[in-house]
Design a protein around this nucleic acid. Structure first.
Length: 499
RNA sequence: GGCCCAUUAGUCUAUUGGUUAGGACGUCAGAUUUUCAUUCUGGAAAUAGGGGUUCGAUUCCCCUAUGGGCUACCA
């Protein structure tokens, strides 16, 4: 019988989860979904100096937004079992086994001493050097006991001497690393806490993890994990390493810029930013697609697929090996593509929710939807809708007038005032103005500059949707708006008649 | 420095021994649009370099270069 697949996502809460971490979580999730397996969430918080509870919350929130659901695992309210800081007793039991079988030993060097050794760049704490160093392999029992009693020790894993550890990665193929390159890794610190290597190996075994899906940065550290598994005589899981996500400067980190955005806005100590994928206006399903895209060579067709299809198409063979540079602009255009061709019901609703917050004049829902339909083909992110539709909600704040129009206003000042007063305003004072009336009126003006001036007075700038639509909608919202704006503009050019 | 991994246009990638090296975003030009956007048409643009193996190499091997990761009492 085939063993049930079980994967885990095991972030360490030393910073807000970034897109790279989320991508790892997502790949674990879809892998489990694809093969009907389990997906667990574990919090690997063995780095007690850098861990923060806020980051655990952040991780959970980010997973939730992306709808990455786990079968079992850490839950801030209910289940706190899947967190390593609550499992120290367990690790200690396994540690004792390693010591008893001479797979691990006590070492007594201070950090200072180690730094001294490391000034020689070739220094490695392993089979070549350990017999000369200050550890329980070389010292008598009395000495060892004294150090252990004073808690001045770490425990190191015995890395076997000069053998090639070969393992198969499902993405990268066979990886071969000689043990002479590897330190006898510290698996237990002087503060009585295990390090990641021990804790994660033990947990992965106890949780019966069958596949380890994580970032490529672990590729050369995997032998340590394998050695531990062999000492315990456990079944080694399969490894699936994912290409790294890079920003312009290298591996993405907790420092944010536009190519390295957080998922959610964060405000924690000196980590403050309002920008994030969510708050900048990415659609959830687009963001999920982007996560899938980062590392999959089969998803370059530029159609936004839903989760079901992403899972259906998933194949280890299609995971690429080379690292991926985050390209925020590309992400934006994927979002834009979705707005243009995606599920318009969902899109319009989200855009409506955004505009609703800004709607101070109680513009009717129906009209807002109309505005959305007219403007949404010119935006990339949800938030952009304001930039292209603000003039329906507020009067123009400033007039963005190009030089040639300034010149035109200066030379034809009197005629323009006259035109506004006697022609346009006169037109808008009529009752029951229909779309066709506006259409005919505008078409008959037949003077590009005057049309531009009408647009300027209403919108504040020369870009935007069809002028007839703008006028029609504004007139529907409130008959007085256009007249008011025309008068404002008249006042404005009167003030600045010599630009 | 050592070890590991990668290298196709600006970016994401297709082609795993025979293709005029394909697509998407971006970019440029034209048409449409009173403007902008959309839409349509078209253009420029890549197998990092050098050696092998082969009738033939983007594809396999080696070297170099570049990028990235690891080399922590971080994960």
């Amino acid at each position: 019988m085939k063993k049930k697949i079980r994967v885990r996502f095991a972030p360490s809460p030393t910073g807000p989860l970034h897109i790279g971490g989320l991508r790892t979580a997502f790949y674990n999730y879809i892998y489990a979904k694809k093969y009907n397996g389990d997906f667990y969430l574990r919090i690997d918080d063995t780095d007690i100096k850098r861990n923060r509870k806020e980051y655990i919350k952040y991780i959970l929130k980010a997973l939730k937004w992306c709808k990455i659901k786990y079968n079992k695992g850490y839950n801030i309210n209910k289940n706190r079992k899947y967190i390593q800081s609550k499992r120290y007793d367990i690790y200690k039991r396994y540690l004792n086994y390693l010591i008893k079988n001479k797979y691990a030993y006590y070492a007594f060097e201070t950090k200072k001493e180690l730094n001294e050794y490391r000034k020689n760049k070739n220094f490695i704490y392993n089979f070549l050097t350990r017999h000369k160093l200050n550890n329980s392999l070389n010292k008598n029992n009395k000495y060892i006991k004294k150090y252990i009693k004073n808690k001045k020790f770490v425990i190191r894993l015995v890395i076997p001497s000069n053998i090639n550890i070969i393992y198969k990665d499902e993405v990268f193929g066979n990886i071969e690393i000689n043990t002479k390159e590897i330190d006898d890794k510290i698996i237990y610190r002087s503060n009585n806490k295990p390090t990641y290597h021990l804790a994660s190996a033990v947990d992965d075994h106890l949780m019966k993890i069958t596949h380890i899906i994580r970032g490529k940065e672990w590729l050369s550290t995997t032998p340590i994990y394998i050695i531990l598994y062999k000492y315990f005589n456990w079944t080694i899981p399969k490894f699936i390493h994912l290409p790294l996500l890079l920003n312009n400067k290298g591996k993405i980190s907790k420092r944010f810029n536009y190519n390295n955005l957080p998922i959610y806005p964060i405000n924690y100590k000196n980590l403050v930013t309002n920008n994030s994928y969510k708050s900048n206006g990415f659609f959830r399903n687009v963001f999920i697609y982007i996560l899938a895209l980062l590392g999959r060579s089969d998803l370059s067709e530029y159609k936004i697929l839903n989760l079901k299809k992403i899972i259906k198409l998933f194949s280890l063979k299609k995971i690429n090996k080379s690292d991926i540079k985050i390209n925020y602009k590309l992400f934006c255009s994927i979002n834009r593509n979705y707005i243009l061709y995606g599920n318009s019901k969902n899109i319009n609703y989200k855009l409506y929710l955004f505009l609703k917050k800004k709607n101070n004049n109680n513009i009717k829902k129906k009209i807002i939807y109309k505005i959305i339909n007219l403007t949404k083909n010119r935006i990339s992110l949800i938030n952009d809708i304001w930039n292209v539709s603000f003039y329906f909600f507020i009067n123009p704040i400033k007039y963005n007038i190009p030089k040639d129009i300034i010149k035109y206003i200066n030379t034809n000042y009197k005629d323009i005032i006259k035109f506004i007063k006697n022609n346009i305003i006169f037109f808008f004072k009529k009752k029951n103005i229909k779309y066709n009336n506006i259409n005919n009126y505008i078409k008959n003006i037949n003077n590009i500059n005057l049309l531009k001036i009408i647009r300027l007075s209403i919108v504040g700038e020369l870009v935007g949707i069809n002028l007839i639509d703008i006028i029609y909608i504004l007139n529907k919202i409130n008959k007085k708006i256009i007249i008011k704006r025309l008068k404002n503009f008249k006042k404005f050019i009167y003030q600045y008649k010599n630009f």
